[in-house]
Structures are given as C-alpha cells and as structure tokens.
C-alpha cells in the first residue's frame, strides 16, 4: 500500500516526529511504500542540519536522513513554513528537499492513506 505521512511538530519538543519515524519504519518492514514524508508547521525543524543532540540521545534528524537513504524516501519540507522558521538549503540535512505545499496535496491524492503526526 502507498502511504504518505505528514509531521507538524519539531523534533524533541514533541513526540510526533518519533512516532512518525517508528510508524514509517514499521510500514517499510511490512512491505508498504512510503510515498512521501511532508514536514509542515514547526515540523520543518526536523530538517535542520544544525541540530546537535547530546550523544546519549537519539539523533532525530540524522535518523530521518538515514531512513531516507536506506529506502529512497522523499522527505519534503514546506518552503513557506521553512522560510518562516529559518530552514533553508544552507542548513538542510541530507535526504531532505524544500518544496511547495502542493507536494502535500499531491501526496494526499496519490497515496492510499495519509497519516498526520502533530500536536
């Protein structure tokens, strides 16, 4: 099944990004395809390459980058939401790309399911 995911909260502050990550991993393990992960609202902060969590904590940003590399995931950060919050190509972590809100709508149209994680 083709699944799309949207994440509306930033890393660490809220569990949304963790839940979404574990959901995506489980979906991929079950043989589903993740059409796109779309980062919106404060969720765009999940794409910041400037994130430096303590070594004994999970690295949420790096974890998304790795999942994207391992499974060719399309991680899309909303441009308008990103510019509001200081996320640009200059500080975009590997595996993410910045694009328009249309990418969220398109994912909703093309995927069989769209699951939202937020606050």
């Amino acid at each position: 099944m083709l699944i799309a995911v949207t994440i509306n909260e930033g890393p660490y502050q809220h569990q949304a990004s963790d839940s979404a990550y574990l959901f995506c991993k489980a979906a991929l393990e079950k043989g589903h395809e993740i059409r796109r992960v779309f980062f919106y609202n404060d969720g765009v902060n999940n794409a910041s390459s400037l994130t430096e969590p303590p070594l004994d904590d999970r690295n949420i940003v790096a974890r998304w980058s790795k999942l994207a590399a391992d499974h060719k995931l399309d991680l899309v950060v909303c441009v308008a939401a990103a510019l509001r919050r200081g996320i640009k190509d200059d500080n975009l972590a590997p595996g993410f790309r910045i694009s328009g809100l249309g990418q969220l709508v398109e994912a909703g149209i093309e995927a069989d399911r769209l699951v939202t994680f937020g606050d």
Binding site: I3, F23, A26, K30, V115
Partner: peptide, 17 residues
Amino acid sequence: DYGGFVDLVAEHKNCQS
C-alpha cells in the same frame, strides 16, 4: 505495536488524527 498501528491504517479506508 507500531506494526499493528500500520495494519490499522491499512485496514481502514481513511484515518484522522
């Protein structure tokens, strides 16, 4: 578990958070 979460999403026609 998370696998069960995925199954629930797949089994239902639509979902809402």
